[in-house]
């Protein structure tokens, strides 16, 4: 599991850890049932305080991404399909943003863009 933290970012460290673990679950790098290091070991490895890793794990557990059992450790939970889909849709929307920005730069209007989108969409179906 790779986690890269920025200590200068305004985003709190526990938030960064959370987001990156989530990301790895979405992309399939972490799969259901996979064991994660204990929060104390993670804290040591990332050189963050125990409370930071604890908070990240607890939040992820609450949100259903991780399950932990006393004495056994923390594992990746089985993911709900709609979570995955939601995330993939969000990724697509990010691509849209990029697309629109590029279109604007080239001077295409909303109508131009929609027209092209329709052509591509239909061409694909036929």
């Amino acid at each position: 599991m790779n986690i890269l933290l920025s200590t200068t970012s305004k985003e709190p460290l526990f938030q960064q850890i959370k987001e990156q673990i989530k990301q790895q679950i979405y992309t399939g790098e972490l799969t259901e049932g996979e064991a994660l290091p204990s929060m104390r070991v993670l804290a040591k490895q990332l050189k963050v305080s125990v409370i930071t890793s604890k908070r990240a794990y607890e939040d992820l557990e609450k949100e259903g991404f991780l399950v932990s059992s006393v004495g056994k450790g923390t594992f990746v939970a089985g993911q709900q399909p709609h979570f995955l889909r939601e995330w993939q849709v969000r990724e697509l929307e990010n691509d849209f943003e990029q697309l629109i920005a590029d279109a604007k730069r080239l001077g295409l209007t909303k109508r131009d863009l929609l027209e092209r989108l329709e052509i591509f969409f239909e061409g694909d179906e036929s």
């Binding site: 204990s38 104390r40 070991v41 804290a43 040591k44 050189k47 125990v50």
Partner: peptide, 10 residues
């Protein structure tokens, strides 16, 4: 500091 973190695994 690293040593202290190592100790905190307990």
């Amino acid at each position: 500091i690293d040593l202290l973190q190592e100790l905190m695994v307990d």
